[in-house]
Design a protein around this nucleic acid. Structure first.
Length: 573
RNA sequence: GCGGUUGUAGUCUAGUCUGGUUAGGACUUGGGCCUUCCAAGCCUACGACCCGGGUUCAAAUCCCGGCAGCCGCACCA
């Protein structure tokens, strides 16, 4: 299995280690070793290049510990849980709602634990395995709880996603973006979920890294000005419909998917395309990627359309590495209600709209004396009424009877007239919708390693993209002669001065050194040989095809910098 | 969380059943020799019985508990 091989290399060569090993470890935690940490940084740098530099989004950083109120508002305190029940006899643990739905075919999602417990006993539902009695239902919350402050009065949680840290300072962000939609804000960082039983290596971690973008848009503006750039991209879509009728994924082009409504909006589709291009850029080819739409039943409570980007793996099958959701106004609305802050945006219409309304115009000279002290109250009351009700009453009875605090007042046409007035409306306040691409960095790193692994009769190597490979260049003396060693060292040092991570290796034979470099995906090797002493040239070896070219030492720095950043192809040296 | 199963250097493994000398080998890694381009060879060094308790004169080996890995079940807003 490639999984096995790549995880062995990852462990041996310092990409990934399970954490706390000398204390016998703890499931769901991984260390990034020396090469893993560089690889991760390089991938995150690529992501920043994609979302910040090219898309024009801005990054923020918020705390990983959040007070309870914030996560109460987001719904995580109450809903990021599973209702559990346990068989008293065989100790089997179940999801209570699944047991009930299986036993009595009734939709019980969202009911409280107490109610679920009652349903269990009312219907005499027993353990499906042994028929034993089930315990009362309890909520297992996947968040790590902690205490904030010395007195420990305030409950806090480790954040289960970075997204909330973006929603909460929305007012500040809106001001930063000078009040105009759309805008995008990203956050890269750790998130925490206390998984019940994480057992899939780096695929299900209790502490993991997310890179999320929250793109705030006007609800009515879900097109994308640059969509034309992506409209011809091919996407392999596995729509909800195709999942339900078991017809498999289908390749289609992005423009078509928007037109036929497979994907709910242009802007969501844009993010799908962006994800595909990003993955291609870091070395995950399109033929191992598909986009799977959430089924209506699995869609999170906050989303109206959600697509997982999945990568094919030999060990786990298709795994989700990115989720791209239209979260609508769910989060902002909820934070707005809980915090009592106005989290809406004033959206100006292209053209001001004028609307004509019919208003009540009392003749105050008569109105005041008629009602005396009650006049202000009556005035307020009629302003709240539907004008047409008064009109109808006038037409029918010639008078409108108003009941107010037990008193009746008669309004007649001689004191009330009607007036049309025109109002100019320049826009409206709306709570923005949020388009959220959420990248699971650890899973992406695993996918990159997995799909970079190449094994053939002659050798095994990691075909890491040159821009993300942890080590850019290996420098070798062909043989361990002092003069060659010395030159190799100085070349290595100069690469470092030029900002490239370079390593020297003089151990074993030249073949072994190439093999060692190949195993960790070093894209290029520079070899100092006998000819170097004669004419000041060295060879540059290309990892992927083993080809070598001879280049003067003075040129190798610019040549390799250009090779690594993609401005120069190896064949054109 | 439940059941099964397995834990010996960085990796793979012998030894465990049947307790007994200094835990053996291969690969890897470090140093050296050799070597003029793809894991060669030679010399040399470093490196291990998952943790804790118990039984015993003596435990890698037997027993109990824990932890971790793997497999199955369950779980994965």
């Amino acid at each position: 299995m490639t999984d096995n091989k790549i995880m062995n290399i990852a462990k041996k060569r310092g990409f990934l280690w399970s954490s706390f090993e000398i204390y016998s470890g703890s499931a769901g935690f991984f260390d990034y070793g020396p090469l893993g940490a560089i690889l991760k940084n390089n991938i995150i740098e690529k992501w920043r290049d994609c979302f910040i530099t090219r898309e024009g989004f801005y990054e923020i950083e918020s705390p990983t510990i959040m007070p309870e109120e914030a996560l109460k508002a987001s719904g995580h305190v109450d809903h990021f849980t599973d209702p559990m029940t346990e068989c008293k006899d065989c100790m089997e643990v179940y999801r209570a709602d699944h047991i009930i739905e299986g036993a009595i075919d009734k939709e019980v999602e969202g009911l409280e634990d107490q109610r679920l417990t009652e349903i269990l006993s009312e219907n005499q539902i027993r353990c499906p395995k042994c028929g034993g009695h089930l315990t009362h239902v309890w909520s297992y919350n996947l968040m790590f709880q902690t205490l904030i402050g010395t007195k420990g009065k305030k409950t806090g949680y480790m954040r289960p996603e970075t997204a909330q840290g973006i929603f909460i300072p929305f007012k500040r962000l809106l001001r930063f973006f000078r009040g105009k939609l759309p805008f995008g804000v990203v956050q890269i960082g750790k998130a925490y979920r206390n998984e019940i039983s994480p057992r899939q290596g780096v695929i299900r971690l209790r502490e993991f890294t997310q890179a999320e973008a929250e793109i705030f848009v006007a609800p009515s503006m879900k097109n994308h000005p640059k969509f034309a750039n992506f409209a011809d991209d091919t996407l392999r879509l596995f729509s909800a419909e195709n999942q339900l009728n078991k017809s498999g994924s289908k390749k289609t082009n992005a423009g078509k998917a928007v037109k036929d409504g497979t994907i709910s909006s242009e802007i969501l589709t844009y993010q799908l395309c962006l994800a595909a291009r990003f993955l291609n850029d870091i070395g995950i080819p399109s033929d191992v990627i598909r986009f799977r739409q959430h089924l209506p039943t699995e869609m999170a409570h906050y989303a109206i359309d959600c697509w997982d980007v999945e990568v094919e793996t030999d060990r786990f099958g298709w795994i989700e590495i990115i989720g791209i959701a239209d979260r609508t106004d769910f989060d902002l609305k909820s934070h707005s209600i809980h915090s009592k802050e106005d989290l809406s945006v004033f959206i100006e219409y292209d053209e001001p709209r004028s609307i004509t309304t019919l208003g009540v115009k009392p003749d105050m000279k008569k109105f005041g004396p008629s009602f005396k002290g009650a006049a202000p109250k009556i005035l307020a009351a009629i302003n709240d009424l539907d004008v047409s009700d008064i009109q109808t009453a006038f037409n029918k009875d010639g008078v409108f009877k108003l009941e107010l605090e037990g008193n009746f007042y008669e309004l007649s046409p001689d004191i009330i007239s009607f007036e049309k007035h025109e109002e100019i409306i320049r826009g409206e306040k709306v709570i923005p919708h949020v388009i959220e691409p959420s990248y699971g960095i650890d899973r992406i790193i695993y996918s990159v390693l997995l799909h970079s692994y190449i094994e053939n009769e002659d050798r095994t190597y990691l075909k890491l993209e040159k821009q993300i490979a942890p080590i850019g260049i290996s420098v070798f003396p062909l043989v361990n002669k002092d003069d060659l060693v010395e030159i190799a060292h100085s070349i290595r040092d100069e690469f470092r001065n030029q900002g490239i991570i370079a390593e020297y290796d003089g151990s074993g034979t030249i073949g072994r050194r190439y093999a060692r470099a190949d195993e960790i995906g070093v894209p290029f090797a520079v070899t100092v040989d006998h000819e170097t002493l004669e004419n000041q040239t060295v060879t540059i070896r290309n990892r992927d095809d083993l080809k070598q070219v001879r280049v003067p030492i003075k040129d190798i720095y610019s040549v390799l910098i250009n090779l690594i950043n993609g401005r120069l192809e190896f064949e054109n040296i």
